[in-house]
Structure formats: C-alpha cells, structure tokens
C-alpha cells in the first residue's frame, strides 16, 4: 500500500468526521461529487451526508460562519481553495478568530486548511505561502507539515486544539510524497523533528522546503559535508530549543523558507538564535527565501524564484567556507 500526502489529508478528515460528530467541512466545491479543487474531500460528502458543505465564493463569510459555529460547540474544518484566497478572509482570521480568546476567554476551535506553495504554471495568485503572515498575529497556531505522516496526524491534532489553527498544506507535496502507511500518533504539536542528522551545518526549514533541503543535504554529503536538517513542523509555536540544540552541535545555521523574504519565519529563527545562541555560532547565520517579487508563471522563472536543492546547497557551501 502507498498513500500520498493528499490522500493522508483526505483520510484524516474522514477519520475526524467518523469519530467526532462536532466536525464538519466547509468550503468551495468540497461537497457533492467534486470533492474540492484538489480532491482532498473526494467522496466524503457521500459518506457523511450533511457534513461536507459547499459554500459560495465568500472567503470572509466562510471563516465568519466557521467562527460562529465553533463558538457554539462545533469543530469546523474550512478549506480555502488556494491559500492565496485566504487574504479575503484575513479580517475574520486575524481580527476575529485570533483575538477572540484573549478578549472573551472563549476559544475558537476552527481549522483553516490552506493549500499553498508553488507549483509550475500557477502564477502569482495560486502559489503563495502564507504562513509568515498568520504567524505574525497572536492567537493562532500555524502548522506546516512536510511529510505524509505529519499531514495526517497534524490535521487530526489541529481539530483537537481549542484555538484557531492555520494548517498550511503544500500543493507540490500532494502527489510527490508517498508513505507506506499512516501512523497512529505523531510528534506533539510544536515539537520540531530532526529530518537528517549532521555535524557541519544546521538547515532549519519547514513544509516543501524540507524535501529540497534534504536533497541539498544529499548533494553536500557527496562532497563530505554533513548537514543536519530540522523540520519545524509548526512555524508557530516555533521549537527554538530544538533549533538551538542543533546549532550547538554544528555551529552554523541556514534557514530556508518558500515565502517572500522580508521578515517571516526564517528571519524569526535567525533573530532567536542570534539572541539566545550567539555564542554557539561559528559564522553569521544565513537565510534563503523566495525572491521579493510576485510568484512567476513560467516554469523557468518559477523554479528560479523559489529556493531549490541547488540554491540551498550553494548557500550552504558559502556558509561552510566562512
């Protein structure tokens, strides 16, 4: 048996619908026979009648509705058709869901699934990585699963958490990643994972950049350079302890993210390591992100816009020469 990242997301939702009557799925074209733009809910409407609901193209109202339902005992899973479109729902997510517990002491247990990240030919409006925007605001958990196993267990965990969870699923991984089976249990939320052990350099990353970083590490290993790859799993909370422990072993830090370069998760990691672990560093930390332009359409431009195994490896070599 082989199961993809996308199938893991579907299976997690099926399990949640089966085992928790408070769960319903809400989004554009998720119901009926269509099963969502990427088929992450395929067949669920038939299996769970009345609990996989199509919505109008109204991202603001979709999240607003989910908030109201969550306040009244439900556990809605919202599917944004593309992460990019969640910009329409920013007000409800950041100002309503994100502030609610702080203001009222009543939590808002919604899960918002964001199919994000680049794929060839998707262009500026269907490729964005939104995790840094959501992590910037208080009151939200931001998950960025990088493996089939995490895609499954973290979505189940997201729905169990009483606070709003932004679940960033990467479209590039939907079909590219496969696992033999789904685990019963994953690491705790907020705990990073050492995806590859190494002594020369720490690469901290998340989501699809974990795979690119692992490929880069393979390339570097052929040159005798051993990279440790830390998969953050959640951008917020950020497991600073695991990152610092890795930097303590290697003395060098490279942060990799697919989102735009100004601020964001990679900058936050470097800020924390230089504040709390300056003495651990043998060289100035480095980061690599997408370029500071909208995401291009053409495959030649797209593949040069985002970090890749090649550019990550090049940056690592530069850092190791210091």
């Amino acid at each position: 048996m082989s199961i993809t990242y996308l199938e893991a997301i579907r299976e997690a939702q099926a399990k949640l619908l089966r085992e928790d009557e408070r769960v319903f799925i809400y989004g554009q074209d998720v119901g009926g026979t269509f099963g969502g733009a990427f088929k992450a809910t395929k067949g669920l409407a038939k299996e769970f009648p009345g609990r996989v609901l199509n919505t109008p193209i109204s991202e603001d109202a979709i999240v607003g509705t989910a908030i109201g339902a969550a306040l009244n005992g439900m556990r809605p899973i919202v599917e944004m058709q593309f992460a990019d479109f969640s910009s329409i729902a920013l007000n409800q997510i950041l100002n309503h869901a994100g502030t609610h517990y702080w203001r009222t002491q009543v939590p808002v247990p919604i899960t918002v699934r964001l199919p994000g990240g680049g794929t060839k030919g998707s262009g500026p409006f269907h490729s964005q990585s939104m995790e840094s925007i959501y992590a910037h605001y208080p009151g939200l958990i931001v998950m960025t699963p990088a493996t089939v196993e995490d895609a499954y267990t973290m979505l189940i965990e997201a729905v169990a958490i009483d606070d709003p969870v932004i679940y960033c699923e990467h479209k590039y991984l939907y079909y590219h990643l496969k696992a033999d089976k789904l685990p019963e249990k994953g690491l705790p939320t907020g705990r990073a994972r050492i995806a590859r052990a190494g002594r020369d350099l720490t690469i901290v990353t998340y989501s699809a950049m974990v795979q690119e970083s692992l490929s880069a590490a393979e390339e570097l290993a052929r040159e005798g350079l051993e990279s440790e790859v830390v998969d953050l799993r959640t951008v917020k909370p950020l497991d600073t302890d695991t990152v610092l422990a890795s930097v303590a072993r290697t003395g060098r830090l490279l942060c990799v993210g697919e989102s735009f370069p100004w601020g964001g998760a990679t900058a936050e990691i470097i800020a924390r390591v230089t504040s709390a672990g300056f003495h651990l560093l043998d060289a100035a930390p480095v980061r690599i992100n997408a370029k500071d332009t909208p995401i291009p359409y053409h495959p030649n431009l797209w593949s040069a816009h985002r970090p890749s195994a090649k550019t990550i490896a090049a940056k690592a070599r530069m850092l190791l020469r210091e």
Binding site: F24, S58, D60, A61, I62, V63, G64, T65, A66, I67, G68, A69, A70, L71, N72, G73, M74, P76, N91, Q92, N95, H96, T99, H100, R103, T104
Partner: peptide, 23 residues
C-alpha cells in the same frame, strides 16, 4: 457575541452560530 470593529463581520458569525444549533 462580542463584536469586532470591522463592520459586517458579525453577520456570518451569527449564521455560523445558527448552523451549529441546527447541527
């Protein structure tokens, strides 16, 4: 419900609360 300043936001929240009751 505790309103936020951004007008119109409470309409869909009320809808969601009613859907929960129906569920």
């Amino acid at each position: 419900l505790a309103m936020i300043s951004h007008l119109g936001a409470m309409v869909s929240a009320t809808v969601g609360a009613l859907m929960a009751k129906r569920f």
